[in-house]
Amino acid sequence: MNYRKLGKTNFNISEISLGTWQVGGKWGSGFDDKTADELLNTAIDNGVNFIDTADVYENGLSETAVGRVVRSRSERIFVATKCGRQINPHVNEGYTPKVLQKFVEDSLKRTGLETLDLIQLHCPPTEVYYRPEIFELFDKLKDQGKIQNLGVSVEKVEEALKAIEYPNVTTVQIIFNLFRQRPSELFFSEAKKKDIGIIARVPLASGLLTGKFDSKTTFETQDHRNFNRNGEAFDKGETFSGIDYELGLQAVEALKALFPETENLAPIALQWILSFDEISCIIPGASKNNHVLSNLSVYDSPQLTSEQISEMNKIYEKLIKPAVHQLW
């Protein structure tokens, strides 16, 4: 495992870390504590020391599992969670310091931790980023010892750029992968100037970049890849990075032609992300142990050459960029 600094938090974290949206479940189709514990322990056994969760993942069960496993380990494991998505309807007016403070205190109870290493606003409406009182709350929570750092998880580059104007924002979690390249244009350089940690989420475009899906692949009813392709439940950019599924498959076929000997494209897609020095870590999810090991097999693959990276980018430029680049 290789480690990188998480911006001005100064945490030294595993560049391949773990997202827990589907740990112990399968996109909302039931939670299994045993599976969650196995996945989390496998990740930590292999050098992962940064785990990202949220209060809404499996209605708090993900946070509970993360806290249980972290407390059982002797290693220093950094825990990041998120708050805000419980607000229903999820609108700007629902965001108040009082409501958010309660969410943070509930996360502390569920995890059983004395303090949260990183709390992140969970993709709030754009208007929230223009309300200083929301960000000021987290200075108070830090003074109280309830949190160590504040970050944001965003949908849009605009939101990321606004968030890092607040001096207490230390990290930004953003969708970034071979099929979602816009953040690297302006945001990365601005984040670097302010020593902001960048956490890349949805790194495999909801599994599309593993190369294991085709036009006949079906997804379970509760799986967002089945019900949210057009943003029916939440921002469509969270599902296949907002790309039309068939177009995505076309781009994946071009990738396969570029790497004809490679059965699993996931390590190649992760390597592409790691080629950016501005990235602090990647948080691929996992619902099975072999998913964790697949993500970590990035270290078993030959290093991508500059020529290969250039050819990968050409696939994006030709097939994906015209459809999605300016949307987020």
Rank of each mutant, 00 (worst) to 15 (best):
V128A: 11
V91G: 09
I147S: 00
L116T: 02
N92V: 10
F135P: 12
E155R: 11
S72T: 09
R131I: 12
V152E: 03
N59Q: 15
T111Q: 08
N177Y: 07
E105L: 08
E185A: 10
I174E: 01
F179P: 05
F103T: 07
S62D: 02
S72K: 13
H122S: 13
S74F: 13
P132D: 13
I119M: 00
V128T: 05
L116C: 01
L137Q: 09
E105F: 02
K162M: 14
L137G: 09
E127M: 13
S62N: 05
F135W: 04
S184R: 12
R68I: 06
L150I: 03
F138D: 00
F78K: 11
I134N: 03
Y95M: 00
A163D: 09
V104Y: 08
P183A: 02
P97N: 05
V152S: 03
Q144R: 14
Q120K: 06
V91P: 06
I147V: 14
P167Q: 14
L141C: 10
T170Q: 14
C123G: 05
L161Q: 14
D117G: 01
E127F: 07
Y130T: 12
N88V: 10
E185G: 04
Q86K: 08
V157K: 07
T126G: 09
A65Q: 13
Y95G: 03
G94E: 01
E159D: 15
K98Q: 15
V99S: 03
N149D: 08
D117Y: 00
A65R: 09
H90I: 01
E127H: 12
N149E: 07
I164S: 03
N177W: 00
P125E: 06
L161S: 04
L141D: 03
I164Q: 06
V152Q: 04
R68A: 11
V169M: 01
P167T: 12
Q144M: 15
T115G: 00
I87H: 08
V157Q: 02
K142P: 05
N59Y: 09
C123V: 13
R76E: 15
V79Q: 04
N88R: 13
F176G: 02
R76S: 10
E114F: 02
R131A: 01
Q120P: 03
K102C: 05
Y130N: 15
Q148N: 15
I77T: 14
V104A: 11
D139A: 11
V157P: 06
K156L: 15
L150Y: 02
P97Q: 07
V169T: 07
P97H: 04
T111K: 03
T96W: 01
H122R: 10
L113N: 06
L161E: 15
R182C: 07
V91D: 07
R180V: 09
K162Q: 15
L118V: 12
P183F: 00
A65S: 14
R182Q: 14
C123A: 14
V66H: 11
S72P: 07
E63M: 08
I134Q: 04
F176M: 07
T115H: 12
E127T: 11
C83D: 00
R85C: 03
I174T: 08
